[in-house]
């Protein structure tokens, strides 16, 4: 499982304040904590605090001062992504493109140029899809564009879009089915990821819903997720699902060893 850690995000109050004050402390604390918890990538997102690309550069530099964990540069704005890529010395990921041509044509060449991984979110001109077919169609559009532009498909992470269970309950099984269908897109398949925390929005069983859904999605073929890697029960569930899928070798200490794989 490729774990993209979600906590360095201006949507959280401590990170928002840190960006405003240019206080490296909270960002570096979460960079270290999440790395120790087993993060494969650290997502870095400015949130709504600022629109200045230099703030992204500052965040990326702040993170890579303390860890060499790969960084996922998370912004809807191309100039912010580009600025982040320019200063990023760790391995890089772009979060994210959609299936909209303008974004594909801008972001895929950028991924190729910076040898970065790329998350492709399966929304298109019609916005977020409400069924399986549109999800897969948009993801396939992204996949085809990646191939056309010469991006290694093993660097591509397709995201069939997690939606809140509470408000869109019928979507959960559409997401699972879309994951199943994406696994046969190529051999080996591209990576498939989700922004897990969306699933449990505004519920009072956040961790349980995230945990159960993640395991079910892994069973369907999900091999990456943007999630809270410091949620111990979530990580234990992932480690156990990896054993059941025979992706990891069992040992009596597998819960501990999974985090340092």
């Amino acid at each position: 499982m490729i774990l993209i850690a979600e906590r360095i995000n201006g949507g959280f109050r401590d990170i928002a304040q840190a960006i405003k004050d240019k206080d490296k402390g909270p960002i570096q604390k979460w960079a270290k904590l999440q790395t120790e918890a087993g993060a494969d990538f650290l997502d870095v997102n400015m949130g709504a605090v600022t629109r200045d690309p230099d703030d992204m550069a500052w965040m990326v530099e702040t993170v890579q001062e303390v860890v060499d964990t790969p960084i996922s540069i998370d912004s809807p704005r191309m100039e912010v992504v580009k600025r982040g890529l320019e200063v990023c010395e760790n391995e890089r990921m772009i979060n994210s493109t959609t299936a909209v041509a303008e974004r594909l044509n801008g972001l895929i060449p950028l991924a190729v140029e910076y040898d970065a991984c790329l998350i492709g979110v399966a929304s298109g001109d019609g916005g977020s899809p409400q069924d399986v077919g549109r999800r897969v169609e948009n993801a396939a559009t992204i996949f085809a564009a990646a191939v056309d532009h010469g991006l290694d498909t093993q660097k591509l992470f397709l995201d069939p879009i997690a939606m809140p269970l509470k408000f869109m309950q019928e979507q959960a099984k559409n997401i699972l089915e879309a994951i199943r269908q994406l696994t046969v897109l190529s051999d080996p398949p591209p990576h498939i990821t989700l922004g897990l925390s969306n699933m449990a929005s505004d519920t009072n069983q956040r961790n349980l819903i995230n945990r159960i859904f993640l395991v079910m999605a892994m069973g369907a073929g999900l091999d990456a997720a943007i999630c809270d890697v410091t949620d111990k029960k979530l990580m234990d569930a992932v480690a156990t699902a990896e054993l059941i899928l025979n992706n990891e070798i069992y040992s009596d200490s597998y819960l501990d060893t999974y985090r340092m794989r």
């Binding site: 070798i249 069992y250 040992s251 009596d252 200490s253 597998y254 060893t257």
Partner: peptide, 14 residues
């Protein structure tokens, strides 16, 4: 036993 092989390494690491 591959599981024990992994476990012994884990113990040494510990």
């Amino acid at each position: 036993d591959i599981n024990i092989a992994k476990q012994v390494n884990s113990l040494a690491l510990d």
